[in-house]
């Protein structure tokens, strides 16, 4: 028997790449001014260069996976690309030091809404390869509109002069968000609760089995 160890090479390279892929979000988690454990490490950071690199990496993956949503034909693949986009948007929140919003994005959006979407895909497709073709004219019109929209927005942003605000070092506390939700935003908070209740009943009613 020949022990084919050469097969180790590709899987191990893939595994290393996978670990690096995991390392990137882990590093991004606190780059946005999370309080460092010790005084010393805080001053040892080389400027905001690290933040900048992490932002570019995460933003690139966000945009590429959003483009992947546009390009892919299969709905499940679209959902997987959307998974990637949503996760990276969550990491962007962490980079913006909005840790609570980031965690909620992960737990509600990625863990809840996306699973619901994939569930919907599975319930409503006849075969995994069911495709819905779009007319090329429509595609090109949509492309022109969206590229135009994007470039106009970028032009507007580049001409704007935003007031420069100093980057804070510490993130927002969860407690502040909790207090704000139960004081200033009490009415919308309760309205959202009622809305969720209505949605729960409504969705159950819509999707119920008809009794024949």
């Amino acid at each position: 028997m020949v022990l084919r160890l050469h097969k180790l090479t590709i899987p191990s390279l893939v595994a290393v790449a996978g670990l690096l892929l995991t390392a990137a979000p882990a590093l991004a988690l606190s780059a946005g001014g999370e309080a460092s454990p010790t005084e010393a490490t805080k001053v040892a950071a080389p400027g905001s260069l690290f933040d900048a690199i992490m932002f570019y990496v995460v933003a690139l993956v966000t945009v590429v996976s959003a483009l992947g949503v546009c390009i892919s034909k299969n709905v499940v693949r679209m959902a997987v690309w959307l998974f990637c986009t949503l996760g990276c948007v969550g990491l962007l929140y962490f980079l913006l030091a909005a840790t609570f919003v980031g965690a909620i994005q992960f737990i509600v959006y990625v863990g809840g809404t996306l699973v619901l979407l994939i569930f919907g895909v599975m319930l409503t497709s006849k075969s995994p390869w069911a495709r819905y073709e779009t007319h090329p004219v429509e595609l090109s019109a949509a492309l022109v509109v969206c590229v135009g929209l994007f470039s106009t927005l970028c032009l507007v942003f580049s001409s704007m002069r935003w007031p420069v605000v100093q980057w804070e070092t510490e993130g927002t506390a969860v407690r502040d968000i909790g207090v704000a939700l139960l004081t200033r935003y009490l009415v919308p908070f309760e309205a959202a609760a009622v809305l969720l209740f209505i949605v729960m009943v409504g969705a159950a009613h819509l999707a119920r089995q008809e009794k024949k």
Binding site: P37, T99, A103
Partner: peptide
């Protein structure tokens, strides 16, 4: 050390 570590791990 996230201040939302619990929510993060659950997510």
């Amino acid at each position: 050390e996230l201040d939302v570590a619990l929510v993060f791990i659950l997510a």
